[in-house]
Design a protein around this nucleic acid. Structure first.
Lengths: 338, 338
DNA sequence: CTGAAAGCGCTTACAG
DNA sequence: CTGAAAGCGCTTACAG
């Protein structure tokens, strides 16, 4: 178990060439003759040699490591990770995944730690609109995913939240709903702001005034249960209003679960008593009764696009903003107002 | 953006000491005087210095990187990742996450790649019972998680699958069921074998014979939809039997969803027409009707324990097997046979 | 087409 | 308590 790993030097000796030649062969520099390449590859195989990427990274400044910082390990971010992993295969990159747990302090520490690991680039779903100032000075390219920060000159890959929210709200309005409650995550993040905006715009287009009592923030606390409770409490509060909503739009998956939970407790049937639109599709929705109309996010694709954006940023300093369409998937949970 | 990162040398110059001293301060070698430490730390702060971990890794042989290889990004493995991340904070480790996509070839490639990245250790949920032979020769410590491989002298952190499956089956038997269908994942992996065994043992203890027609493998194909279809098809096949089961036990989450989907299509009510026990708890179960009795896995804890096991393996060459208890969570989905 | 040599940024005995 | 120096395993001009 303890035999030392073979190095370039060992391979060179066995193949009777210099280490420079071995390195060239390894990197397909194609400056070697057919025979030499053969001999070197033979030696590599015999020794079971594999390159020490730490050394390569130190010398070349390219670690083949990509950092990913997410605020939690929700299925949504996991799906983004899958997209990133798939795309990274093309570039021979590996992904270092870190969890900021919705803490700005932790996030900024992680940026430092990953930079110290010499990652070739980073993809981050920022906690708030404050990114570590260091992120701008240093030369590690960063791409923002899901959530954007306007002030920063950084590539972004996001969903078209305004449009997605607009479509959902419009759907409810077309069904005749006039009092539509919306449950949002934390006030500080771009997704919240944009989903609120889409909602407001849809209302405006139908000349319906915005009632702040129908706009709730259920995601101010971190953790799965806190978000579920946030959705739950938002519904409870709204249904206690003198004039409660006839439809509810929950703008993320956990808020949705909490909201539905509250509705069940209140013995309100969906869609007979109240209409509902949720967020994010998951396998369990195939067996849910009723089936839920939801806004579906192309999370996997967002991951892939983030790697593309990172690649372009690295090569051409190109700062792109990619806004992926959100799809309204119509199912049983929304009807007309009672 | 392109200003070069400061190195140890820059810090040493500014603090008027040698690079060795800076290194000592950085590593808390406590061989430096109070004043020197102060000066060095001052210089570090002023320069915004952060250590190049590639260089450190090359010299010290310790990259502070842990590799994790999972067969897919299911919530179960994501939860394990969360546990690993939490525990890694104590050791200042970062996690490189790779997805083998249930492919043995890909898995073994990933082991190579992560070893080349000089990871200080690896945690792998193996695809089959074949682990890259290299994994044994090399000196990178590996810990197996979830799935075990008997022939290998490697630490394992797993769930007590036999007992979990035994408890679920026994529960169904106590309710009077005699024909219990079980839906398993792929035949080749340890979890499948053990869950089958728990089922068989429970039957034996009640002197009920095993009917191979009631044992189905729904997880032979990779991918979320394939597994769901596997669960679906297993139920369809079993319910077509001359003497169909009165209860069904689905041994993973995706199989469970497929199975319930089939039951709904067949218009069989749970638990009135058929009893059901599933696997893995998820937030959506809070709003499901009926609520499902399930076998719950301590995935987060498995992640934490895996890091512990890795740490012990690294330090004392201690090869431990940790078997975490599985909990049967009683809810509405199982009743008496119709 | 191939090799000798410098150097990436650290750590670690070893002297002093 | 501090410093000079070797060396980890590579890559990359530069000669030949």
């Amino acid at each position: 178990m303890k035999k030392k790993k073979p190095t370039l030097y060992d391979v060179a000796q066995r193949a009777n060439v210099s280490i420079a030649t071995v390195s060239n062969v390894l990197n397909n520099k194609s400056e070697a003759s057919e025979k030499t390449v053969q001999r070197v590859q033979q030696a590599i195989k015999e020794l079971g040699y594999s390159r020490n990427e730490s050394a390569r990274s130190l010398k070349s400044g390219d670690s083949k490591l990509i950092g990913l910082i997410v605020p939690d390990n929700n299925p949504f971010f996991t799906e983004i990770l899958s997209g990133i992993q798939e795309e990274c295969q093309h570039y021979d990159w590996q992904v270092v995944v870190a969890n900021s747990e919705e803490s700005e302090l932790r996030q900024n520490q992680l940026i430092e730690l990953l930079m110290a690991q010499q990652v070739s680039g980073m993809i981050v779903a920022p906690v708030t609109d404050q990114l570590n100032p260091l992120a701008r000075k240093r030369d590690t390219p960063i791409v923002l995913v899901d959530r954007e920060i306007e002030q920063l000159q950084l590539p972004v890959v996001k969903a078209d939240n305004i449009d997605g929210s607009y479509k959902a709200t419009k759907r409810l309005l077309s069904n005749g709903h006039k009092r539509i409650g919306i449950i949002l995550a934390s006030p500080g993040i771009s997704t919240t702001i944009q989903r609120r905006q889409g909602y407001v715009e849809a209302l405006h287009h139908m000349n319906i005034g915005v009632d702040e009592d129908l706009i709730r923030f259920g995601g101010s606390y971190k953790g799965t249960n806190a978000q579920i409770n946030g959705g739950y409490q938002s519904v409870m509060d709204m249904m206690n209003l003198p004039s409660p909503p006839t439809a509810i739009f929950a703008t993320n998956h956990l808020l949705m679960i909490g909201a539905v939970k509250a509705l069940k407790e209140l013995r309100l049937k969906i869609p007979a008593d109240i209409s509902f639109i949720g967020f994010d599709d998951h396998p369990w929705q195939q067996i849910s009764e009723p089936s839920f109309t939801i806004v579906s996010q192309p999370a996997f694709e967002m991951g892939r696009q983030a790697i593309h954006a990172l690649h372009k940023f690295k090569r051409h300093q190109e700062i792109s903003t990619t806004s992926l369409p959100l799809q309204l998937v119509l199912r049983e949970s929304c009807g007309t107002p009672r």
